[in-house]
Nucleic acid binder design. Structure first.
Lengths: 236, 236
DNA sequence: TTCGCTATGCTTAGTCA
DNA sequence: GTGACTAAGCATAGCGA
């Protein structure tokens, strides 16, 4: 009905062009709404098709949002490990390299400062939103968080075991004492803190019983070509 | 109009319950369609709001699909490094720490032995009761165990902080060249054999010119509570 | 930043090819 | 594993609060 041109009196939805929304206010609203919609859709897909998913969104002002099933880090882990054998190595070595250099620089102070901040934040009951999940008392978690926590920890365990095995195989001379330290955490998940959630009320996944094994024989990656010419979105 | 009950003659869309689709054929179709829709939505969000995004989907038969803007790895990297200052600190301190320890590889054998023991313990499903918490499936824990677990984690935190500080004070004598060795085990996982990738050319994004800086002052993570009770999707 | 509201426009379940 | 088609269900742009 040529609705694309009329309806100027309507307050309802109008067609929009897919390009950057310039008006900040509008953009933020759009961001919020679509983000929410996206999370729900991702979750639906996970449930409907029993797929593992991870969605990470970094807003323009560097705020981080993520969503995953069974949890983000688990999926990321699988992605990095199985997505491509080199990706992992790359990531790690590059990361480590960079961190090394940075660490040996004067940035120690900055870090210390940050650490202190973190500590302060923790003590101030996490008001700022720093996701130090292990700093949250289990009591303060709601059931779901504990649930997720559980899953995260299971992931940790798996990682640990894997790491141990690899160490043994590779004769890696690391110190066991390290193992007692939170090594595998990085791979794993940051947990939710009981933030100012908007009423939605998470529920745990209870007994989803997700398979957590490593890649099977089929780790193929399929390419997907975006519909959006201007998109920087690489689908594969 | 009570359409939810009628329309049995229609071939059109009907409301579905969000739960696993049992019929495989149907599930696959749903998966394909929704996956596509999701990728498009994610891309739209990226463009509209100039947000960085990464979506990873692992199908039930372990096929990997991903999509990201400006590209998946970039976002993952930011997520892991900057998702939270904590996470980064973790990465840094742990990496460095481990490197240092590796440098002093005198006790390699002893460790190896120990590791082996640990492994045995694991395989014997932790019958002994040795406080190797990571060997316990959280499922098997009772509340008390979880409590202890919590305490354990708090201890971990303290160790981490201590280690970090010590590292800073001690001017971390780690060698960058070490980084080129197969360092990454702790964070990571098991080796995967180069799978038969199905010929995908990853698309470059050329001149997307995305900002690539590390995290600024704001690394907060916002929690999002899922609408789905059965969802294992942790949004935050 | 999120919520409610409304009127579209887009997504997609169902089906066949 | 897609593509096309239809009709229905949902997401969401725009506006206020």
């Amino acid at each position: 009905m040529a609705s694309s041109q009329l309806a100027s009196t309507s307050t309802g939805k109008r067609k929009i062009e897919i390009k950057k929304v310039e008006l900040p206010t509008k953009r933020h609203v759009t961001f919020s709404k679509r983000k929410l919609g996206l999370f729900n859709k991702v979750t639906e897909l996970s449930i409907l098709c029993h797929a593992e998913t991870a969605l990470i969104i970094i807003s323009q002002n560097n705020k981080l949002y993520s969503c995953g099933y069974p949890n983000v880090d688990h999926v990321l882990h699988r992605f990095m490990v199985g997505g491509s054998p080199t990706r992992m190595a790359e990531h790690e070595s590059l990361e480590a390299l960079r961190l090394e250099y940075e660490a040996t620089q004067n940035q120690a102070k900055e870090e210390k400062k940050r650490l202190k901040e973190m500590k302060d934040e923790q003590e101030s009951n996490n008001g700022g939103g720093f996701p130090c999940w292990w700093n949250n008392s289990v009591e303060e978690m709601d059931l779901d968080s504990v649930e997720q926590f559980k899953i995260c920890l299971e992931g940790m365990k798996i990682n640990l075991v894997a790491a141990l095995e690899q160490k043994m195989l590779g004769a890696a001379p690391s110190n066991p004492s390290l193992v007692n330290k939170p090594i595998p955490l990085s791979t794993v998940a940051p947990k939710i803190e009981p933030q100012n959630t908007t009423s939605l009320g998470i529920q745990g996944y209870g007994d989803q019983g997700q398979v957590q094994g490593y890649w099977g024989n089929d780790g193929a990656v399929t390419q997907y070509s975006s519909l959006f010419p201007t998109s920087g979105c690489g689908h594969y």
